[in-house]
Simulated scan of single mutants.
Amino acid sequence: MTIHSQNLAEAGTLEVRHDPEQSRYTVLLDGEPVGVADYITTTAAVHFTHTEVNPAKRTHGLASILVEQALDDVRVRTDLAVVPDCSYVAHWIDTHAEYQDLLTRGR
């Protein structure tokens, strides 16, 4: 399922896909997978466990776009809390106050 698609003039066409069977969000640049955000879902929370973007593509802010779109999807699809086990996701939420409510949902 595609949850976000846009054209980045400097980078190309960007798409974020959610694959619930693999518990993964993938960011694609011009149709090529360049990053992932893996998660585990429990009865109370979505635990983001790992985020990785191809080092050659990191200058485009793809990790930030990937995490933002994944968190937006969790917000819309579930009422579960988010647990940022991945240090990148934890830092991203710390610097984006509008997403900090996800940490305490359902409690």
Rank of each mutant, 00 (worst) to 15 (best):
G35F: 04
G35R: 14
G35T: 04
V36P: 00
V36L: 01
V36T: 05
A37K: 00
D38M: 06
D38N: 07
D38A: 01
Y39Q: 01
Y39S: 00
I40E: 15
I40H: 06
T41M: 11
T42M: 01
T42I: 00
T42R: 09
T42Q: 09
T43K: 06
T43V: 03
A44F: 05
A44K: 12
A44H: 12
A45M: 11
V46T: 08
V46E: 10
V46L: 13
H47P: 01
H47K: 02
H47D: 08
F48L: 03
F48E: 00
T49A: 01
T49N: 08
H50Q: 03
T51V: 09
T51A: 05
E52A: 03
V53Y: 03
N54E: 15
N54K: 09
A56Q: 15
K57E: 09
R58L: 02
R58P: 04
T59W: 04
T59S: 15
T59M: 13
T59V: 13
H60S: 11
H60T: 14
H60R: 01
G61E: 04
G61D: 04
G61W: 06
G61A: 04
G61V: 00
L62G: 08
L62A: 13
L62D: 13
L62S: 11
A63K: 15
S64F: 00
S64E: 02
I65T: 15
L66D: 07
L66N: 10
V67R: 14
V67C: 11
V67Q: 15
E68W: 06
E68N: 15
Q69K: 14
Q69V: 10
A70H: 04
L71F: 05
L71T: 10
L71C: 10
L71G: 08
D72P: 01
D73S: 10
D73M: 02
V74G: 13
V76M: 04
V76Y: 00
V76Q: 07
R77S: 10
R77P: 02
T78C: 12
D79Y: 09
L80G: 09
L80K: 13
A81P: 06
A81W: 03
A81H: 06
V82W: 00
V83G: 02
V83N: 04
V83T: 11
D85W: 05
D85V: 03
D85H: 02
C86E: 03
S87H: 02
S87G: 09
S87F: 04
S87M: 07
S87I: 13
S87N: 02
Y88R: 10
Y88N: 04
V89Q: 07
V89F: 01
V89P: 10
A90G: 08
A90T: 09
A90V: 07
H91N: 13
H91F: 05
H91T: 15
H91G: 13
H91M: 12
W92K: 12
W92T: 12
W92Y: 13
I93D: 09
D94V: 07
D94M: 08
T95H: 13
T95I: 08
T95P: 06
H96S: 05
H96I: 01
H96T: 05
E98G: 05
E98S: 06
Y99A: 01
Y99M: 03
Q100L: 14
Q100W: 11
D101V: 09
D101P: 11
D101M: 11
L102M: 11
L103T: 01
L103R: 03
T104S: 12
R105H: 08
G106Q: 12
G106T: 14
